[in-house]
């Protein structure tokens, strides 16, 4: 763990990624402290200051009802990260279990589980999420549900392939010969050897979940106002380009930096943890 961090920080590119991720995560956690106008995350109206360009008081300008954009972006990070963490916290255990069971047991179980996975994978993710959101109320909870439904199959595929490879390793045979049960072999022998790949993918995916969530709200299907969301901010501001450029540029930049940061760290982790094996 410590060694991983040292290597991460030694490479300039991955160190930059760590910096970006740290900034995003810390600002989301400490939003109440660092933000100049905490109340602006809600339905506040300040017509005296509406649609102002960046200034000393509002470093990223204000939106169409006069709310501080910087404050809203920081709160939007909090929502996006929460979404990402919850989605992965549900999708990863499901996907990992499906992949492990299918890959280790094989036979009919493998056939049923992996065909089910294929069905989910064959639907374009945005379409699946849009149809779920269309049927259900477009709330934050349903948004998480929609994104989760399209995320677990990727983990099932990943872990399935890893498990198939690990199953041939001598230590798996050794545990079986020793008399260890199937559940033990799957979760205590094989799973720990898949963890580096899973962690790497999770890091990359935090960025993608933010992106997908933003796309959904850009289409008006995600987080609903007045809750701040990067995607809907970009969407709302797009009408006022190029004059009120700050309305789109700053939320857009915020998405870019977060996704970029998670990707840099994910790529670096892939190399570091992959080389460990």
């Amino acid at each position: 763990m410590k060694r991983t961090l040292v290597i991460l920080l030694r490479n300039p590119l991955s160190a930059f990624g760590v910096l970006l991720v740290a900034t995003v995560v810390l600002s989301a956690l400490l939003a109440d402290v660092i933000v100049p106008f905490p109340e602006h995350r809600g339905a506040v109206v300040d017509f005296a200051n509406f649609n102002q360009p960046p200034s000393a008081q509002h470093p990223m300008g204000t939106d169409l009802v006069g709310r501080d954009l910087f404050s809203r972006i920081v709160y939007a990070y909090r929502i996006s990260l929460l979404l990402g963490v919850v989605v992965l916290a549900i999708a990863v255990p499901i996907g990992v279990t499906v992949g492990l069971v299918a890959g280790y047991l094989g036979g009919r179980v493998e056939y049923v589980l992996m065909r089910l996975t294929d069905v989910f994978l064959s639907i374009p993710p945005l379409v699946l999420a849009m149809s779920i959101m269309g049927v259900l109320e477009p709330t934050l909870i349903n948004g998480m549900l929609a994104v989760t439904a399209m995320w677990w199959p990727w983990y099932a595929r990943l872990v399935y392939n890893l498990t198939r490879a690990e199953r041939e390793e001598g230590y798996v045979l050794a545990a079986e010969v020793l008399g260890a049960g199937r559940v033990w072999v799957m979760f205590r022998e094989i799973l720990p050897n898949c963890v580096p790949s899973i962690v790497t993918k999770m890091t990359l995916d935090l960025g993608f979940v933010i992106l997908i969530a933003s796309s959904l709200s850009f289409l008006g299907l995600g987080v609903q106002p007045p809750t701040p969301d990067l995607g809907s901010m970009v969407a709302d501001g797009a009408t006022y380009l190029p004059d009120s450029w700050w309305l789109t540029v700053f939320p857009g930049l915020a998405i870019l930096l977060a996704v970029f940061g998670f990707n840099l760290v994910g790529d670096a982790l892939r190399e570091i943890l992959g080389a460990d094996q």
Binding site: G170, Y171, A174, V177, L178, P192, N193
Partner: peptide, 23 residues
């Protein structure tokens, strides 16, 4: 059964893969 597993044990060819690297 478990007692049969206990009675017959194996030493494999490849010492690199015979032990779980994560343990």
């Amino acid at each position: 059964r478990i007692e049969h597993r206990r009675a017959i044990q194996l030493v494999q060819q490849n010492p690199l893969s015979a032990l779980n690297p994560r343990r």
